[in-house]
Design a protein around this nucleic acid. Structure first.
Lengths: 333, 333
DNA sequence: GCAGCCGCCGAAAACCTTTTCGTAGGCGTA
DNA sequence: TACGCCTACGAAAAGGTTTTCGGCGGCTGC
């Protein structure tokens, strides 16, 4: 199987290259019988047009770059899938580059992508804290998950404050009054924002956090276990725990189980992230907050397409999260 | 920031396009002083060569396609990273396509990639069972993780039989004699192969499986829990459990903990996959088998490069796995 | 003083496709 | 019969780069 060019097709069909092109692209100025001959020739040679040459003419490569900082992380992948989904794959293909959190590797990839004449760029961060802007580029850029620090850029982020609020709201609706919050590294804006949303909602209800404060620590099961033990010490009457991630929630469940405290009848537990391998397989399955990352990816693709069509935007757009109800929460009694 | 072409650079430097090209590409037939002038002009215009045009001439696009069936799965990602790593990112960029297990979507992506004139293709399956070959293509193809059913293709797979053997060997070296194997869906060749390796090694030692047979079931924590309970019923003296995946191992650990059976002093547990969020955070941290997928990806890229340079290969190449020792296994006593 | 060579540069072709414009022939109409 | 119009097709340019080849000036060696 070799590579036929349009010239080969034209020769086989007995027409000129121009006519062959027009025939295959559905241009009207070609007789039906001629078009048929060209199409058959193209099929016979299994011709497929050279997109590079097309791009040279149209000044559009039909490609976009996806520059991520943590490919192994679980955040980039759903966004990537959503984006791939939104660009009809017949129209646009995506170049994937992983900078691995390294700035010079990022510059490097950026040069390569510009050289490949991508029509646009999606930048996905590893954590929701804002990141340095790439600056002015000849192509539109959309920042997803981690916003750019330049308000002139387009950024799409998940609503962590709203997520914290939603989680606590759900627990309140379940009739819980003594609600604790165990979460991860306080250096992450994700931890701060989720905590803020939680406290806000509690305050509205005239409640305060069980244990008196947010339990910041690390994004790990082990911290979930340790914090839960301390929490039970300080407030044995706690009736709900909002964990800042599903990993932490797993640790929480583990200790509650060990202490023979029933979930959800005695203590309700809610996680964050909806990382299904953790959340769906726990005992009991974990109620949690889904970040809607796939939708974030789709919207990122749409915003990028709009910008490529000459309709740019700017600012930070915040996307709602979604409550996933499983069995680790239930109304009291 | 607009787009300078080589013509602009040449004009600014006061030379012809040909000379500018040669100057920037390090060709010898250009005076040092002239080259310097051209380089400065290029920098001033922040010129970056149009790779599409280069590809048109050299008949090399400098891109490869990565066609995967499960992007969200944990197998594609490390392979992808290894591959991205092995292609120096300055030379080669990778198009990522996810067919989501759908054959027609796969054909579709394939057409798009061929049209983009990728220089080669890596096909990554979702599970280690063999998959239909893409057939003869104008570019080299390497199948990774899931082998092609056509022996004329190049396929790279992990050594599941060897993995099962390694796991059991480790348990035997720890002095264990009553070893059980709980694994997933028997329809997966991964399950069959790992079990075969395990039984082979046991037989060499004159041992038989605790419980009398392999416990096939599902790739889930819940099955790990259920099977462990049945196993403890049938053979309360079991002193080691080889789980076919880390998820299953988590279920095993869970039930052992519940039954107050100490790991590893009473029962050793070993997992499979080294999915670190599960394996490293369990209690105790899980000894497991790492599939070396990143290396598999790197080798896939190397084999593909070789084939693109005109050194094709064929057949199925099997790659060794690696034992990761943590705290869930230890010598008896 | 002349042949030949070498160092440096420019013109032009090539890669493949799309699009514009020109042209040839057929037809209807005056 | 002559003119104009319409349909269907082909020639050619364009897009940005690389590469080949030819040319030009200056140098060496006799």
């Amino acid at each position: 199987m070799s590579r036929a060019t349009l010239r080969d097709v034209a020769k086989l069909a007995g027409v000129s290259v121009a006519t062959a092109s027009k025939a295959l692209n559905g241009q009207p100025q070609v007789r039906a019988e001629t078009r048929e001959r060209v199409v058959r020739a193209a099929e016979q040679l299994s011709f497929s047009p050279n997109t590079l040459a097309q791009g040279l003419i149209t000044q559009r490569s039909g490609t976009v770059g996806l520059l991520t900082s943590d490919l192994e992380g679980r955040f980039s992948i759903p966004i990537l899938m959503g984006a791939e989904d939104a660009f009809g794959s017949d129209q646009t293909s995506v170049f994937l580059c992983d900078a691995r959190g390294d700035t010079i590797r990022e510059r490097h990839h950026l040069r390569a992508l510009l050289s490949r004449r991508v029509d646009g760029l999606i930048v996905v961060g590893a954590r929701p804290d804002s990141r340095p802007s790439l600056g002015e580029l000849p192509i539109p850029v959309v920042y997803a998950y981690a916003p750019s620090d330049d308000p002139a850029d387009i950024s799409l982020v998940t609503d962590n404050v709203g997520g914290g609020r939603t989680a606590v709201d759900h627990l309140i609706r379940c009739g819980r009054r003594r609600i604790a919050h165990i979460t991860g590294d306080p250096g992450y804006s994700a931890a701060q924002d989720r905590a803020r949303g939680a406290v806000d909602r509690l305050t509205e209800e005239g409640l305060r956090l069980s244990g008196g404060e947010v339990w910041f620590g690390m994004w790990s099961e082990a911290w979930g276990r340790g914090a839960t033990r301390m929490l039970l010490d300080r407030d044995p009457q706690v009736d709900a725990i909002f964990a800042g991630s599903d990993e932490i929630a797993r640790g929480v469940l583990d200790v509650l189980h060990e202490e023979r405290i029933d979930v959800p009848s005695q203590v309700a537990v809610i996680g964050f992230d909806n990382w299904s391998v953790l959340a769906a397989n726990s005992r009991p399955p974990l109620t949690t907050i889904d970040l809607n990352l796939e939708q974030l990816g789709r919207i990122a693709a749409q915003r990028l397409s709009a910008a490529m069509e000459g309709h740019p935007a700017s600012g930070v757009e915040t996307f709602p999260v979604r409550l996933i109800t499983r069995e680790s929460t239930a109304p009291l009694r």
